[in-house]
Design a protein around this nucleic acid. Structure first.
Lengths: 183, 183
DNA sequence: GAGGGATGCGGCGTTTTGTCGCAGGGCGGC
DNA sequence: GCCGCCCTGCGACAAAACGCCGCATCCCTC
C-alpha cells in the first residue's frame, strides 16, 4: 500500500473532513483539505505537486466530479478517487470516464481510501459473482443513507421511505455498523 | 441516437441473444453475435470494421470484460458498453477503466442499449441526488436477480434469500416489470 | 406414463411494520 | 432560567407481510 506524499482532500463536512485528514496524516501523508469546489481549485493552483486526491462527490450544490478534469490537467499523474454517500453505477461510470481511479461509497475509513488509491481496480479479482441477498443489500443501503444524514435516524428513515420506528427497530437488531460476516 | 452500422454482440444466453440481435437489427444495425469469449475473439479477427460492441459480463466461467482490451486494440474507435445481470460499482469501474463507454444492468432493451451507446456518460446530468427508497431499491434488485435466473421464481427467491411464496406475492403487487413512476 | 421441477394459490401462525402516544435530552433564542 | 424545537427511545396495538405447510396443475424428459 503506497501512501501518497501529498494528497488533496475535498470534503464539505467539517467533522468528517477533519477526521479523515487526521487519519490520513497518521499514515504519513500531507493532506491539503478544501471544503468546497472553489477553494479546491484555488488550492490546486498553489500546490507544487500532488500525488493523490480524494473527492467527495456530494458538495451541496456542487459536484466533486467537476474537479477531476482541471485537477488532472494540472497533475496528470495524480491518483484520484471519488467518495460519495450513496453511489450509483451511473455516477461511478461518469467519475471513471473523467479519470478517477476508483469510486468508493461511505462509510470509508483511511484504510479503505489508501487501499483504493494503491490498488488498480482494472483487474476484476473477486468481483461478486452471486447477487447479494436482499437483507444484505438493504442493510448496506441503510448504512449509506444513515451516514449521508450524519446518523440522523429521523431524516434517514424519511429518505428511505420507511417509518422512523421501523428504522429504529432494524438498527437495534444489528449492532455492528460495518462488519457483516454472513447473510 | 446514432445507430451503429456494425455491432458485436457477446451474449451467452441463446434466447436473449437472438432477441437482442433481432431488436437491434430492426434499428438498422448489422449485428455480429458470439456466445462465448473465444468465438468473439475469432469473430473480431475477421471483421473489417466495427462501430460498437455490447458485451455481457457474465459468461459462465469467462468474463466479458476481458474482450474490451483486445477489441479496442483492433478497433480503437469502437464504442463498447457492458451489460450484466447484477452490476456492482466495482465492476462498473473496472469496465470503464478498460475502456467501456457505459455499463448497464439487465433488463435492458434495444433502446436502452442504443441510448447508452450514443450518450456520453461523462456529463453527469440527472445523476440521482437523493438516495432511492428502500422499496425501489428492493424492487430493482429483485428484477435483476429474476432476470439473471431467466425468470425462474423458485431459484430467484432462493438467490435473494426469501421464500418463494413471498416473491410470488411481491411480484403480483407490481405488475409492470420495468416502469416505476413513484416510490 | 412416471418422475422431477416450476408455478399458482389457500390457509394459518408468527413476525414485522405502521402509527399512535409519551417521556427525556440537547440546544438556541427571548 | 425557561420555552419551543428537534431528535431519540420505547410501549402498545392493529394491520400487513412473511415463513411454511400443503395441494393441484402444467411442462418437460426419460
Amino acid at each position: 500500500m503506497t501512501v501518497p506524499a501529498s494528497l488533496l482532500l475535498l470534503e464539505d463536512d467539517d467533522i468528517l473532513g477533519r477526521q479523515t485528514q487526521r487519519a490520513l496524516a497518521r499514515h504519513g501523508c500531507q493532506v491539503h483539505w478544501a471544503t468546497d469546489l472553489g477553494a479546491a481549485r484555488r488550492l490546486l493552483a498553489t500546490l507544487p505537486a500532488l500525488d493523490a486526491a480524494v473527492l467527495d462527490q456530494n458538495l451541496g450544490a456542487d459536484n466533486g466530479l467537476d474537479l477531476i478534469t482541471p485537477l488532472l490537467a494540472r497533475f496528470p499523474e495524480c491518483r484520484v478517487i471519488v467518495l460519495t454517500g450513496y453511489g450509483s453505477i451511473a455516477a461511478a461510470v461518469a467519475a471513471t470516464r473523467r479519470g478517477a481511479r476508483n469510486y468508493l461509497t461511505k462509510p470509508a475509513d483511511a484504510n479503505d481510501i489508501l487501499d483504493a488509491l494503491s490498488r488498480d481496480p482494472g483487474d476484476l479479482e473477486a468481483l461478486p459473482d452471486a447477487p447479494p441477498s436482499l437483507q444484505r443489500l438493504e442493510w448496506e443501503h441503510i448504512q449509506r443513507v444513515l451516514d449521508a444524514h450524519q446518523g440522523n435516524i429521523s431524516r434517514a428513515a424519511d429518505a428511505l421511505g420507511i417509518h422512523r420506528r421501523t428504522l429504529q427497530r432494524r438498527l437495534k437488531k444489528r449492532p455492528s455498523p460495518k462488519h457483516f460476516e454472513r447473510d
